[in-house]
Amino acid sequence: MVERTSLAVRDLAVHFEMEQGTVRALEGVSFDLHAGRTLGIVGESGCGKSVTARSILRIVDRPGRIVGGQALLDPGTAEEADLIAMDPESRRMRGIRGGRIGLIFQEPMTALSVHYTVGNQIIEAVRAHNDLSKAAARDRAIELLREVGIPRPELRIDAYPFQLSGGLRQRVGIAMALAGDPDIVIADEPTTALDVTTQAQVLDLLRRLQREKNIALMLITHDMGVIAEMCDEVAVMYLGRVVEYAPVADLFTTSRHPYTRALLRAVPSILATPRQRLATIGGAVPHPGARPSGCAFHPRCSDFMPGRCDAASPAPLRPGEAGASCFLEAQP
C-alpha cells in the first residue's frame, strides 16, 4: 500500500539551552506521514513527542532551538519545501500552520480564547486561510461545527467556550484545526483530558474525518489503548529518539525494543485478573538534561550488555523501516 507521503521528518534535533547546560530534547528523529494514514507517537513524559510536533509547526518556545534536520512537505515533488529552513514568522509558514497542517491540542481551552465566542474564533481561522466574506465564513464555520458533530451548530456558534462541555470544546478544537482544510493533522494528546465515553466519541470523529478527507494524522499519546485503537504505524520514543517503529499489530505482538516490551507489560489492562501485578521498569525516565551515556535506556534495560550499551548509541532507525534502535538488532 503506497500512499502519498505528505511530510518527511529527517534527523530532527532540538536543544534547550538552559543555565545548567544543553538539554538535548530531540536527537535525530525521522519518520514519514502518509495521506490517509495514522502514525502514533508514543512515549512517557520527556521523550520529546510534543517537541516534535511543535518543531514541525515551528512553534518551539525559547530557550528551545532546532539545531538540525528537515521537515519536508510534499517530499520528492516539485513543491517540496523544508519547514525547518523557513522563517517561522514568514507569511508562508503562517499559511502552512493551520492551512496545510492543523493542530489539535490536549486541552482545547489552551487553543480557544475565553473572550470570544466559538464562532468568532472559527470564523477568524477560516478567513485566515480562505478568501471569504464574513457571511460566507460564518456559513463555513457552522458547516465545520456540524461536521465535527456539534448539535444545533447555528446556535452553538454564538456560545463562549466556557458554556460548552469538555467534549464539545474538543470538537470545537477539532473544527478549528480543520478550518484551513489541512491535509496533515497533528493531534497532541487530543483525548487525554476527556472522560472515557467522550474519548470514544472524539476518537471516532477523528477516524471518520481522516477517512473522509484522506488526512495524514500524527497522533501523539501516552496511552497504548489509544494507539491500538487508532494507528496504522507507531513510533515509540524515549528521551528524544525513536527507539522503535512498527506497524501497529506487530508492535503489540512482536515488539523488538526492550523498552517497548517493558512499556506494554507495564500498562494496566481492562482485561486484568483480580489483583494482577504489573511488570515494572526499574527507576524512572531520567531528566533529558541527565541523559545516560550510550543507549539512553540502558540503566533501566533488562537486556543491558555492559561495555556495549553504555559505551555507544545504537544506530538510529531508517525512516519507514520497521525495527528497533537497539544493539540486539542486527546493526548495519
Binding site: S165, G167, L168, D195, V196, T197, T198, Q199, A200, Q201, L203, D204, D223, M224, G225, V226, I227, A228, E229, M230, V248, A249, F252, L264, V267, S269, I270, L271
Partner: peptide
C-alpha cells in the same frame, strides 16, 4: 456496559468495538 466498551484496550485485534454512548454526561 457503556463505560467498559469505551475503554480502548491495548490490543489492536479488539479495535472498532461498537460505540453505544451518545451525548454527554
Amino acid at each position: 456496559e457503556t463505560l467498559l466498551a469505551a475503554v480502548p484496550a491495548p490490543d489492536p485485534m479488539r479495535r472498532g468495538r461498537q460505540m453505544k454512548a451518545s451525548g454527554d454526561v
